[in-house]
Design a protein around this nucleic acid. Sequence first.
RNA 1: UCCCCGGUAGCUCAAUCGGCAGAGCGGGUGACUGUUAAUCACUAGGUUCGCGGUUCAAGUCCGUGUCGGGGAGCCA
Length: 460
Amino acid sequence: MQRTRIREILASEAGGPVLLKGWVRTRRDSKGFSFLEINDGSCLANVQVVADHTPELLPALEGVGTGAALAVSGELVESPAQGQRWEVRAASIEVYGLADQEAFPLQKKRHSDEFLRTIAHLRPRTNKYGAMLRVRSEMALAVHDFFRQRGFFHVHAPILTGSDCEGAGEMFRVSNLEAEKAAAMPPEVRAAEEFFGRPAGLTVSGQLEAELMALGLGSVYTFGPTFRAENSNTPKHAAEFWMVEPEVAFADLADDMDLAEGLVRHLVRHALDHCAADLALFGNFVDKTLLPTLENILARPFARLTHAEAIAVLKASGRSFEFPVHETSDLQTEHERFLCEEHFKRPVIVYDYPKEIKAFYMRLNDDNRTVAAMDLLVPRIGELCGGSQREERLDVLARRMAEYGLPEEPYWWYLDTRRFGSVPHAGFGMGFERLLMLVTGIANIRDVIPYPRTPGHLEF
RNA sequence: UCCCCGGUAGCUCAAUCGGCAGAGCGGGUGACUGUUAAUCACUAGGUUCGCGGUUCAAGUCCGUGUCGGGGAGCCA
């Protein structure tokens, strides 16, 4: 007999013989029989197994408690008691693996996030992390869904890179040389000895390569791991995270903002439609305001305003901020939160930033002071997407690189795309984990990625 | 990296002015014929994060290290 997943068992229309396999969440004993709540990860809900203390079943129940892995075959029947429609009346139980109750760290009670992080190898067996992982999978599918519907192609940008200064953060160095020997080598000897014949690192962004492919395929996106060696110790930064980076030819900043807003709306809609049970868990136990927050995101268009207008709003607010508001400075976290949580009470897109505070590849506006950049801010998390129209004019791009002190030679291929058939184009990056934080209400990035990599942490 | 807060039983936490180390949950044993984080009774369980110091006496005060959390910066 083939095993049936609990998700399907609970959706059954009729009873009958059934084989299920999973892990015991709780066991309750009465005189003469036991209740076992079994979960197999296929959905949030458990199925209740009723096991009579018969001569056949009683020995199998010996030592079975929270965490034990079992196969149960029996009869799916309508449950006579409140609380569940179906239950399984066990005919035989096979134990795959017991879990010593003295030593098994997961108990049938609420655990703190901090504790569960220390046992991340067992976290997938909890309601909250099981739900998170199912939503994560569903959201990844929805990303591909969104872009496919719009004629985008999924492209793979390299993870190993030789571009030293993409301007997006500190890079992890990659080398196949023994560290001590390499350190003793003079730089030119070392470069020659390196696997790639030059310094290499892990990508901090697939954007530049995505641009190259957009300028041929039209509309592309990357969706892959990204690495930043920043010593950031915050609930929204990780050293390894997944980023979605669309890049669109023949598109300007307005198109870019429409795309970002469309993506976020699509993903929130998809979560509400396809992950209802898991989202309800987050709404009950993680963030009481989650579902209203998500509905509110869908209810109205996002607010859009220029950086200059944002500064004016902040100044007019009469609020005293810890960091004073200034025309040429970037928005601080407190400013971002004021804008979307208090002033607009919805997601906000800020665009046209002063050129001094943004990257070299962003398109210079006609005012010569600002660039066509945009940040999409959401309540609680802050920056979810950051993007821009790219500078497609060779002379302006070269001048901007010079202003940033960047040598042209390593970027010859990037500049070539502006030399041959250059077109206006735009794109952005969306932090996938930050999206998951938005959709689940989970407050720490370490809890929306299975095995988080942060400064000093490489366990599991 | 900077600022603030914390580390006490397996987990979550209490312990008054520096004066005998405590609870709930979880575990174990037993009871109960339909439980829903079952209930009831009994029971075991401690290097109070490490090191050093002050004191008759330190979970409590001081120094230092370490780990965790929150905030900031960097950004997605």
